[in-house]
């Protein structure tokens, strides 16, 4: 990749410094490098302006806030050092919400990857009316979280809900989906699976369609059946995609907030409250901006660790 970049860069240099330039430059022509510096930063400027104001500044300002006692009531803007962090690390509610986030991440990532793989594998066999299957599996991904939450809160309704009614019809006991602390997180996982599996499914399907046909032809000549082909060709060929999908899914699941906030508001008794909701609540309901900024940074640290893992793994793979 780097060799490609250099070679094309030198091509560009020869092209634009070629003597056949017809239009005269107004005034003394600045050196090419100086002009490139100017145009380069000029092209970058609009993005950079937004980037600095709405990303770099808040991320730095948040770090500063986390070192102060700032609150929405404007009480205490003084620097208090790492006191917020010390408090957060000793805060049982913070740990509980972080634990909920990790628990959700583990129990959601597994089905979100496996079901996506199954869906893609089924369609890759070459069923007719491809668009219909894709539409059914992918359509939920196009919904806003609030729509998903309205759908599922209604289906999970303990007395009037479709799910409990269906369970009763086949003789199973009713479940207090969103009201049982032992079940609520699983109910969230089911709704999330329905909502976002279509995204992973599309990524898998695209990767499967990129596997060269010759692999399968060779395998069928050797007499390998569909199962054998799936396990000895498709799965190994998909390994890099799987690694990426798992890591992306972990990163996405760690940010869980919308569905939980909308369906259970973190309950019952805090059993589903994720860390993002804890940040939200300490900041906006508890008015403790400095403290919630500190929790944000602890959460950020977790994301950075996973991202670095992703970087190392993909690096090693491409190296």
């Amino acid at each position: 990749m780097s060799s490609l970049a250099t070679s094309s860069r030198s091509a560009e240099r020869t092209a634009s410094s070629s003597p056949t330039r017809t239009r005269p430059q107004p005034g003394p022509a600045p050196s090419r490098q100086a002009r490139d510096n100017l145009t380069g930063w000029g092209f970058a400027a609009p993005f950079l302006a937004f980037f600095l104001v709405f990303l770099v500044w808040p991320i730095l300002y948040g770090l500063f806030m986390s070192l102060t006692g700032k609150s929405l009531t404007g009480a205490n803007d003084n620097l208090i050092g790492l006191a917020n962090y010390a408090e957060a690390l000793a805060d049982a509610d913070m740990w509980r919400s972080l634990g909920n986030t990790l628990y959700f991440t583990v129990i959601s990532t597994v089905p979100l990857v496996i079901v996506a793989l199954i869906m893609a594998a089924l369609l890759n066999v070459g069923l007719p009316a491809q668009w219909l299957w894709r539409l059914s599996y992918f359509a939920p991904y196009l919904l806003a979280s609030t729509v998903v939450s309205l759908f599922f809160t209604w289906m999970y309704n303990p007395q009037l809900g479709l799910i409990n009614d269906s369970l009763a019809k086949i003789g199973l006991p009713k479940v207090a989906w969103l009201n049982d602390p032992n079940v609520a997180m699983w109910a969230i996982v089911i709704a999330t699976l329905w909502w976002t599996v279509g995204f992973n499914f599309l990524l898998y399907l695209a990767a499967m369609q990129n596997i060269p046909h010759q692999h399968y032809e060779a395998a069928s000549l050797d007499g390998a059946g569909a199962w054998r082909q799936f396990f000895s060709i498709t799965l190994p060929q998909l390994a890099p995609t799987t690694v990426m999908i798992v890591l992306l899914q972990i990163l996405a699941s760690l940010k869980i907030f919308d569905q939980v906030y909308q369906m259970t508001a973190g309950g019952p008794s805090g059993s589903t409250r994720p860390v993002v909701q804890y940040i939200f609540e300490t900041g906006f309901t508890g008015y403790r901006l400095g403290y919630s900024a500190a929790v944000s940074y602890i959460f950020f640290g977790l994301i950075v660790i996973v991202s670095v893992m992703q970087f190392v793994i993909t690096r090693r793979r491409s190296a």
Partner: peptide, 24 residues
């Protein structure tokens, strides 16, 4: 440097920004 900073910023999760961005 610009390229590195932009790529690195991909990992910033939006929830981390909500408190300072709201204040801003």
């Amino acid at each position: 440097v610009l390229m590195t900073v932009i790529i690195a910023s991909i990992i910033i999760p939006p929830p981390v920004l909500m408190i300072p961005l709201f204040y801003q």
